[in-house]
Simulated assay, not measured.
Amino acid sequence: MTRTVDDVKIGSLLRVWRKLRGISQLELALRADSSARHISFVETGRSTPSSTMVLHLAEHLDVPVRERNSLLMAAGYAPSYPETSLASPEMTTLRAGLDQLLTAYEPFPALVMDGMYDVVTANKGVGMLLDGVSGHLLQPPLNAMRLTLHPQGLAPRIRNLGEWRAHLLERMDRQAALRSSDALRGLYEEVASYPAPAGDTHTGPDGRTDEPGPAAHPYALPLRIEAGGQVLSFISTATTFNTPMDVTVSELAVETFLPADPETAAVLRAAA
């Protein structure tokens, strides 16, 4: 069921998301159990989808929850997903669960970030890595990307800075494209402008080198960082919520750092 309108804004937005995902009208129609003709009518403004159809198309286009609200409003409907502050009483159970998760992971580092990589909360394991970081980078909101790649942050102590920097920039670039986020793109451009190690990608800004090649990390790229006079090695994982129904929750990610070798695990346990 559709209604004809003159406003083509919703169609234009859906077309942008479809092209961003690199799929044709026919492919989207097949995914959404619709027709290419109907998708074409929606995109050209000849018809406007129902709110249910907007959300259905958004799901098959993998549109982020925040932008699904924008699509609904462009089509003349009210937003479907609330955006609740983590400080609100409704989030008490969620906050308690996250704190319990981070505490249980100690002494290994773990933190929670929002969609702009601002740190929402972190455990004591993260504190061990922050020694020597410039105070201005630790002022709230503490941004994980700035903290890691800034020359006054962790960067001087990351032994494989070239590799780790490339990994983080690729991750941010992908997220900015998936979310079509100007703010995230701006953050990417900022941290990408920070000084990069010259020459060997395994050489840090202090001139010290790490062991290059796949043999150093056979199953995943590690973060190798000096802390407490020793080189620690971590494998990172990022966890998000399944089927989030709130904008805030949809953009949260739990980042954990698993020791990549027995020596790192022993150092962290001893320090704890």
Rank of each mutant, 00 (worst) to 15 (best):
T2D: 15
T2G: 13
T4L: 12
T4W: 01
V5Q: 13
D6H: 12
D7G: 03
K9G: 07
K9I: 13
I10E: 01
S12C: 01
S12K: 13
S12Q: 15
L14E: 09
L14Q: 05
W17L: 00
I23M: 14
E27P: 07
A29P: 02
L30Q: 13
R31G: 04
D33F: 10
S35G: 03
R37T: 07
H38Y: 06
T44E: 07
T44P: 04
G45M: 05
S47C: 04
T48H: 02
L55G: 00
L57R: 08
D62L: 10
D62F: 02
R68Y: 05
N69G: 06
S70R: 15
L71A: 02
A74V: 03
A74T: 01
A78K: 09
T84F: 02
L86Q: 09
A87V: 11
A87W: 06
E90H: 10
M91Q: 13
M91F: 08
T93I: 12
T93W: 01
R95V: 12
Q100R: 14
Q100K: 13
Q100G: 14
L101M: 13
L101V: 13
L102F: 06
L102E: 02
F108A: 05
L111K: 11
L111M: 12
G115K: 04
M116F: 06
M116P: 00
Y117N: 09
V119A: 10
T121A: 03
A122I: 01
K124G: 09
G125L: 03
G132T: 15
G132A: 12
S134N: 06
S134E: 13
H136C: 08
L137G: 01
N143C: 09
R146Q: 04
L147M: 13
L147E: 02
H150Y: 04
L154T: 00
R159A: 15
N160R: 06
A166P: 00
D173C: 09
R174D: 05
A176M: 07
A177I: 10
L178T: 12
R179D: 14
E190P: 04
S193A: 15
P197Q: 12
T203W: 00
G204L: 07
G207Y: 04
R208H: 12
E211D: 14
P212M: 07
A215H: 12
P218H: 03
L221S: 08
L221Y: 04
L221E: 07
P222M: 03
R224L: 13
I225R: 02
E226M: 10
G228D: 01
Q230L: 05
I235Q: 07
I235M: 10
T237A: 15
T240C: 06
T240E: 11
F241N: 00
M245E: 08
D246K: 01
T248Y: 01
V249I: 14
E255N: 06
E255S: 08
T256M: 15
A260G: 14
E263H: 11
T264F: 03
V267H: 11
L268V: 08
L268M: 15
A270K: 14
A272T: 08
